[in-house]
Simulated assay, not measured.
Amino acid sequence: MLVGLLDSGNSTVRQWAAEALADLGIQRAVPGLQRAYESFRQRGEAPDDSEGVALRWALSELGARDVVVPPRAAALRRSLEYLDPAWPTVHLTEVIEQLAAHGQAVLYFQVWQVKPGGEAFGGHGPGIDWEVDRRLP
Rank of each mutant, 00 (worst) to 15 (best):
G118R: 06
A73C: 02
S8D: 08
Q104H: 07
V68S: 04
G122S: 12
R56E: 14
H124T: 15
S8E: 00
A101C: 02
R41S: 08
D49S: 11
A105Q: 03
R72V: 07
S60H: 14
H124V: 13
A22P: 01
Y37C: 04
R35F: 08
G32V: 05
R14P: 00
H91E: 04
R77K: 12
L5H: 06
L62Q: 03
E45F: 13
S11W: 07
Q98H: 09
D7S: 09
A18Y: 00
A73W: 00
S39V: 09
Q42L: 15
A86H: 00
V3Y: 04
A105C: 00
P71H: 05
V111H: 02
P88D: 02
A46N: 11
V53E: 11
W57I: 04
E131W: 15
W130S: 11
L99G: 05
D133R: 11
H124P: 10
L92K: 09
L21I: 04
L6S: 01
H91G: 03
A17I: 03
A120N: 06
L33E: 10
A20M: 00
L21D: 00
V106Q: 06
A46H: 12
L83T: 01
L33S: 06
Q34H: 07
V68I: 10
I128G: 07
A75L: 11
G52S: 05
E94L: 12
V114D: 12
P31L: 01
L6W: 04
L83F: 02
P71G: 03
L92C: 09
L24K: 02
L92Y: 07
L136Y: 06
A86E: 01
A36L: 06
F121G: 05
P126V: 15
D48F: 13
G123D: 14
V67S: 04
K115R: 15
E131Q: 12
G4I: 00
L80M: 01
W87F: 07
E51H: 09
L33R: 06
S50D: 15
R43Y: 13
T93E: 03
G123T: 14
L59C: 06
P116T: 05
Q110K: 13
D133C: 07
G44I: 10
D7E: 14
P116I: 07
G63D: 14
R134W: 15
A17R: 07
A58W: 03
A17L: 05
A101V: 04
A101M: 03
H102P: 10
V111D: 06
A54G: 11
I96V: 14
V68F: 00
M1K: 09
N10C: 03
Q34L: 08
G44T: 10
L92T: 07
Q98T: 08
F40R: 08
G122C: 09
D133M: 11
R65S: 03
W87E: 00
R43P: 12
S11E: 08
G4R: 11
F121Q: 12
D133H: 12
T89E: 01
S79A: 10
A20D: 07
R65Y: 04
E45W: 15
A22L: 05
V106S: 10
E119T: 14
P126N: 14
H124S: 15
V114Q: 10
R35D: 14
Q113V: 09
P137D: 05
Q34W: 04
E45L: 15
T93K: 13
L33C: 09
V90S: 13
V95P: 05
Q34M: 13
D48E: 15
P71Y: 00
A17T: 03
G125S: 09
V67D: 06
